[in-house]
Write a protein that binds this DNA or RNA. Structure first.
Lengths: 143, 143
DNA sequence: GTCATTGCAAATGGTTTGCATTGTA
DNA sequence: TACAATGCAAACCATTTGCAATGAC
């Protein structure tokens, strides 16, 4: 689990990869830093950012996230239903999502180790699972 | 891995749960039996079935699949992008997919047991993982 | 100045829904 | 007969795209 990067580091990273540093990209990255462990949707990000920058359009947020994902700086997690969510890459984890209430449990990457090892041992397969989503029912919905 | 059920067994199951046995449900279940290990989308199922039953509407296929899923007879797997896929519940398995050559390794459900148990123990979460897809690199592409 | 990026509006694709009709039980 | 299930068209939602205007380098 790496340390959370600062906005400046992220912008340097962007520049270093030859991408232009624009207002939209600065805003989206700043908001993702601010949201920390949350997993906002593109719509949620746009809504939040439009409070201070009304001209920021939803499609720009989508395009920005697309670019950041291609550069490996942002990860997209699509839960079965509804909108996809986005977070800064670097902190590998997985999600268990409750099918009835949508509650999300964050699982460290190490939880997948047994499966990864089994694949390596039995098939010589080097698994690189990145944010898997495991469906099920959470404790309170099972009651 | 349980034996694949026959269409008649599935229809009995439907009846037994108090649901009406209609033409659409018969058709959809028959097609899912026929497709075996494939994972067709609602659209693919509808297209296939419309060849012999042109009046079968896509929305009916969706509603049918929804009912069958609620009854636990069909499982839906949403790969990140594109349409969701459906298959008969009961033959639980997962896939490891090579990112460079596309090779697919089938994993028995038991491979996920450690993660499932951990979720149950630590969070009271009843994981029901159907058809996870684990990315990585296969033995020959690693060479 | 050049070309990537944005704003905007309109299109897309998958899925859902309202309502009159049909068909199962 | 009664009520669930269907056909159809239209709505819906998240996401994408075309294009002219803007802004980063």
């Amino acid at each position: 689990m790496g340390t959370a990067p600062t906005l400046d580091q992220l912008l340097d990273d962007l520049r270093g990869r030859g991408a232009r540093v624009t207002t939209a990209r600065r805003l989206v990255l700043a908001e993702l830093v601010r949201q920390g462990a949350a997993h906002p949707s593109a719509e949620a990000l746009a809504a939040r950012l439009r409070r201070s920058h009304p001209e920021l359009h939803l499609s720009t947020v989508y395009r920005t996230l697309e670019v950041l994902e291609e550069l490996g700086m942002v990860a997209r997690a699509s839960f079965g239903d509804g909108a996809a969510t986005y977070h800064l890459a670097g902190d590998r984890h997985h999600h268990a999502v409750c099918e009835s209430c949508g509650a999300v449990i964050v699982l460290p990457d190490s939880a997948l180790r047994p499966v990864v090892q089994r694949l390596a041992r039995e098939h010589g397969f080097a698994a690189a699972p990145y944010h898997l989503t495991i469906p099920g029912r959470c404790a309170s919905c099972r009651a």
